[in-house]
Simulated scan of single mutants.
Amino acid sequence: MIIRDCSVEGIRIRLQHHRAGRNGILLIHGNSSSKEVFAKQLEKLMKTGLGVVVPDLPGHGGSDDSKRPYSTYSFPGYAGILGSLMRQIGYRSYHVLGWSLGGHIGIEMLARDPAVRSLLITGTPPVRLNPVGVAAGFRWTGVTALAGRKHFRPEDVRRYTSAMMGIRLPDDHQFFRIARRTDGNARLWMVANGMAGCGVDQVEAVSTSDRPIAVVQGAHDPFLRIDYLGRVPYRNLWHGRPVMLDGGHAAHWQSPKAFNEAMMDFITTH
């Protein structure tokens, strides 16, 4: 893997990249996170023969903050930038693996971009973008409320990041630094835009697309209503049901062996 920068719509995007080509896989991280959250998946993915692209979203990690936060920090804004990034570096067909916010962006891309070949989501309930629809898929807690908070206090960083990762992290862990670095406008506008209906109807998107969709999910996710995932009327759901693993919101980090087995099975058969 190499680290490189690309300029997309005037924003410098930092990414990890393996193997140029026309076919690839795009990994999209979650809110107040970064590309490093997929460290446990990269070795396996590099053996597929596909190009692997792992960017930091605008306002996250090593990428620049947006000068137009109200438009960039939305599901369509992120999806447009990532689609442009993949075209810019030469990919014409690619799988998408999205975690949490990354899964919502992936659903947006599935609905809008024919280059998306398949979609694997984890920690992501497909919802209708209004308060009622969001409440159907998410549990509302004090930690959930932090997802849209512009300013993080030190205790907010610890509570939110620990809940996202589902494990106790040492005080100097990079994920706390990454959360502190995140542009607060990215949280504020992502949630505000989603609640205001900025983006596709995600339930309709997954129930009408004929491209393969996998749901690989931690069974103890504190953010999601787990039973909701089984009620979504996916049109082409792998195995016909969500694949449930041990772990919480970040099953790919907490249960990497089981997650990677499911990931590789899905990607290599589609």
Rank of each mutant, 00 (worst) to 15 (best):
L101G: 08
L229T: 11
G230D: 14
I11K: 09
Y91M: 07
S33Y: 01
S63Q: 15
S162Y: 04
K257S: 15
N260Q: 11
T182V: 09
T144E: 09
P114V: 06
S209G: 01
L82P: 02
V96K: 09
S84H: 12
V8S: 02
D113P: 12
K44D: 15
V54K: 05
A135G: 12
R241A: 15
P69Y: 08
F38N: 13
L85D: 02
S71W: 14
V243R: 13
H151D: 11
L224G: 10
A179S: 12
N193M: 04
T182F: 06
G77S: 03
I81T: 12
N185W: 04
S84R: 15
R12N: 12
D201T: 06
G142R: 13
D64F: 00
L188M: 14
E43C: 15
S74E: 06
Y160V: 01
S34H: 10
T122I: 00
H18S: 15
L169I: 02
S74Y: 04
A258C: 00
T124E: 09
I178F: 02
L101K: 03
V52T: 13
R158Y: 11
M263T: 15
L101A: 04
F75T: 00
M264V: 05
F38W: 00
A250D: 10
G49M: 12
H151M: 05
L129K: 05
S207N: 09
K150C: 03
Q254H: 04
L245T: 05
R180G: 07
P242C: 09
A145V: 09
A115D: 15
D201Y: 01
N193R: 13
D5T: 04
R19C: 11
T161S: 10
G30P: 09
P114I: 02
D171W: 11
T269Q: 13
A192F: 10
R68Y: 14
V191E: 13
T48P: 15
G24N: 06
P55D: 01
H29P: 11
D172L: 02
L57S: 11
I213W: 08
G166H: 05
V143F: 01
R153C: 04
L229Q: 00
F75I: 05
F266Y: 04
